[in-house]
Design a protein around this nucleic acid. Structure first.
Lengths: 233, 233
DNA sequence: GGATGCTTAGCGAGCGATCAGTAAACCACG
DNA sequence: CGTGGTTTACTGATCGCTCGCTAAGCATCC
């Protein structure tokens, strides 16, 4: 009778760029897929049980209720992005530009490699108040980390946006949006999408080198000339 | 027994910056509010009827079924943005920079003034295939309009992004995101939010004047120095 | 007298959740 | 090694309730 997160997901000490198999409990895995396809309220516990190949009470043996499935999935997800983002920031050191690029890259990589988990962000509205509060607090913390970096960069003149808080929220929104349209069998790899969004984000926060084209960013440029996929959702 | 959109919403010839009362049928109005608060699948027809103050069959007299309520709302919404965006583009004339700014402004104004309608965009997944296809086609058309403008600007050198399609998708994503966090009683007015997002969008598509600060944009700058609201959702 | 705009009453299906029971694995004790 | 008790992971059956939706009828108005 474990209501615990059961986070076999990632050892957390691992590198922020590496993505192994999900390692979720089969019930959580199939709940995740059902919620992705039909939404939380559009999915019945019978459907989840059916996907797993067990009867309904088996679900209730492992998780308190339907809500606990969503809450566990979302909490697992946000904690994983946060860990990876922190690791990327730490690796980048003190330079605001490098930190910003690393954080955005790590977030977008998460959105692509853990798309089905990341997409559940659209279901926070279905969380009960306490669960939602915990999730939102972690997401706000991520936003705050990024904002601190942008403001540090602004102080050094590497970011010129006069509205850093709005810029950061916009950057996170566009990164989160990747989970809505990315297709693994599409024209761009996860890494290319991440690279492009680092570039776009730099424009959004007003990094002078980005816009004029003459920058020293460690980006492999060839992929930036290929055409982008359409959004469909 | 009308399944028709019943778009009393806006005369469409009116100016794209002016927002009167919604003018939706009471049933649509209350359905919109319920869908906003609990999502499509989380809302029952009984709840909608209760909000309106009638019995359930009264709903079915006016609309074919629950799905028609959502489809009508979403179609009304996307057509309204599209009309306003077209009007803004027409008013701006041929200059890509002016067109881009006008289109982004009109879209963000819609997200703030018609927030409850715009927020329903998160419910497209609950649309049946044909309804979704029609909605997505209109949204794609909007995206295409913006992309054409950005590419025209690129040809003139006013936009420098090497990935215009990704930039446009990101811009629209961040604009759509406004419907998630904007609060009419918050620190910023709709017009200020629109102005800020024009600025952010210019950075995203790589408009040189924006990032370096020395631009001739017709933006009232004072509001850009005030602090931004937090996201909560 | 026929639209229009509702109501009362209720259909069958499915919902989330629970109860009692069970088969198998595990483990300590003699 | 064997045996009895405990734990783990389920199943079958069913609870009370709500779901989307509809048939039939009634009042109001032109």
């Amino acid at each position: 009778m474990s209501t615990e997160p059961s986070q076999d997901t990632q050892p957390s000490a691992e590198h922020w760029r590496s993505y192994g198999p999900l390692g979720l409990h089969p019930i959580l895995l199939h709940a995740m897929e059902a919620f992705n396809e039909q939404g939380y309220h559009g999915t019945s516990v019978r459907q989840i049980a059916g996907r797993v190949g067990v009867t309904v009470p088996a679900l209730y043996y492992h998780y308190e209720n339907k809500q606990a499935l969503l809450a566990t999935l979302l909490e697992t997800s946000i904690k994983d992005v946060l860990d990876r983002c922190r690791a990327a920031a730490a690796e980048a050191g003190d330079d605001p530009l490098a930190r910003f690029c690393g954080m955005v890259e790590s977030i977008v990589l998460y959105m692509t490699h853990r798309q089905r988990l990341a997409f559940l962000d659209t279901e926070i509205r279905s969380l009960e108040p306490e669960n939602r509060a915990r999730y939102v607090a972690l997401r706000d913390y991520l936003q705050h980390m990024l904002l601190d970096t942008v403001e540090a960069g602004r102080a050094q003149g590497v970011f010129t946006t006069p509205i850093p808080a709005d810029a950061v929220r916009s950057v996170l929104t566009m990164c989160q949006g990747v989970a809505n349209w990315f297709r693994a069998d599409g024209p761009l790899t996860a890494e290319e999408v991440a690279e492009r969004h680092v570039l776009l984000s730099l424009g959004t926060v007003g990094h002078p080198g980005t816009v004029t084209g003459g920058t020293a960013l460690p980006l492999a440029r060839p992929s930036l000339t290929r055409s982008a996929p359409r959004a469909s959702r």
